[in-house]
Design a protein around this nucleic acid. Sequence first.
RNA 1: GUGGCUGUAGCUCAGUCGGUUAGAGCAUCGGCUUGUGGUGCCGAGGGUCGGGGGUUCAAAUCCCCUCAGCCACCCCA
Length: 414
Amino acid sequence: MASLQPIRGTHDILAEDHRLYRLVMETAYEIAARYGYQEHSTPIFEFTDVFARTLGDTSDIVTKEMYTFADRNGESLSLRPENTAGICRMFISNGMTQQLPLKVFCRGPMFRYERPQKGRQRQFHQIDAEILGVADPLADIEVIALGAHILEALGLMDRVKLELNTLGDTESRTAYRVQLVEYFNDFRDKLSEDSLIRLKKNPLRILDSKDKGDRVIVEGAPLMSETLNALSEDFFGQVKQGLESVGVEYHIEPHLVRGMDYYCHTAFEFTTDTLGAQGAVLAGGRYDGLIETMGGPRTPGIGWAAGVERLSMMVGDAPEAPRPIVVIPVGGDQESQALIITQRLRKAGFNVNLGFSGNVKKRLNRANKANAVAALLIGEDELAKGVVTLRDMETGEQSEASLSSLEEHLARYR
RNA sequence: GUGGCUGUAGCUCAGUCGGUUAGAGCAUCGGCUUGUGGUGCCGAGGGUCGGGGGUUCAAAUCCCCUCAGCCACCCCA
């Protein structure tokens, strides 16, 4: 039994879910295309280093959630836990520096070894939008506006809230970090165990803690906004202003930080309270130093990722499956004719199903279950007259349709 | 990695003071209708009671282990 189950945290995506996922992904893709983003794909696995070096050795994703294994050459490989590192690697590998600014749309499966729960699986799917090569806040504004546009198109805006923060540039963040450590050091005996570790490795993340005790302490912590240098403050100001000018509402969330180390300046997250404990629906930020860290030319970047399963859960209902016209040979002798007609109609652009076996009753029954719009009954009598019987499956009305002009008779079922 | 709840037919679920062949609804298949679906009537098939071990004359029911699902912590999309 164990071997016939899918691996924990993975599942088969059946037809209905696929329709829903496609709706989400296609909507996102089409809108991104309007903004000039083109779809790219990177492999679902990379040298482990691609993720380990970029995500930072403090992130949980790298330290305990990656599927890492040695291939037959002993090379350490990992299934991608997110897409940004891969995109930056693609940018460097393909020498795409001449194509800047580069707007990338991606979609595909990601893998994280986590305990599954609502809105969280070990294999899940993300859509992704990134702009490489634009240091200007206009890029931040565009990328966030794109995210908002997609959420709006999916009808989710009323259940989603945009949280916005800045992490500042390196100078501001370093200064802030010093302040934070100083502040939290006074509460060493009161901080949660996790946060004590964070204090050493990545103090900013204490701000994000859900521990009740921590939260009280965090209340009194100094704010990033107080240590921002002029440049960072100006940058953030432009982002906010730009968002206002295009009508994207946001809420400043001073404690919003990012899990990955490579982020700077703008950090944002569209969150919801409709997905249980999983709040983040579409989240991202600016990562100006990332490509350089990987060994590429100094190239700014900003982007976001969104969980397809999470978006789908919020959208709720899957679109209906396409409704076919069903071709039914009345007897065995008409089967070859039925096949020819079926194929002819398919080539003419109709959605057509040829029932595979059984008498008329069975085939009609199956047509009904397939939610057919119409059935074409092809029997001896019909063929003798050069017609088929066209049955509307909604009304039950039947009429004769001449074989020569079948396409016209069926026009309304297209 | 930690904690709570759950696991009986394809699906949703009954069934536990342990006791003969484990039930229902829906779904499936067949018939009433050998050229006509959706509603009706009749009938049939389908279950290692998640898996393993233990207690017992006897286990779906009690105990232990394990796997999986859900939810939460954690983390994040």
